[in-house]
């Protein structure tokens, strides 16, 4: 276990960040990734078929 703890950060993100400038917008790459992932997740949730709803039945 101690070995696992010492690995606490395999890819530490402590170096100075990168930033995206676009007009007035000034975003860190990390935040940009989070926001893009959020939008992609939302879109995926809308479009991907939800499993296990084929055996629908009258129950009430």
């Amino acid at each position: 276990m101690a070995y696992l703890w010492s690995l606490a950060a395999l890819i530490p993100l402590d170096n100075y960040g990168h930033y995206i400038h676009w007009g007035v917008i000034d975003l860190s790459v990390a935040n940009f990734i989070v926001i893009v992932l959020m939008i992609l997740t939302f879109i995926a949730a809308l479009f991907l078929p939800f499993p296990g709803r084929n055996r629908r039945k009258e129950s009430q």
Binding site: L13, D14, Y16, G17, Y19, S28, I33
Partner: peptide, 26 residues
Amino acid sequence: QKQHLLGSQWGMMNETGSYPGQAWLW
């Protein structure tokens, strides 16, 4: 400023290093 945290740098939503910050404050 080096960490890109100034108010004029949208710093409120940034974090030190390359970590995501309080993006919800955009």
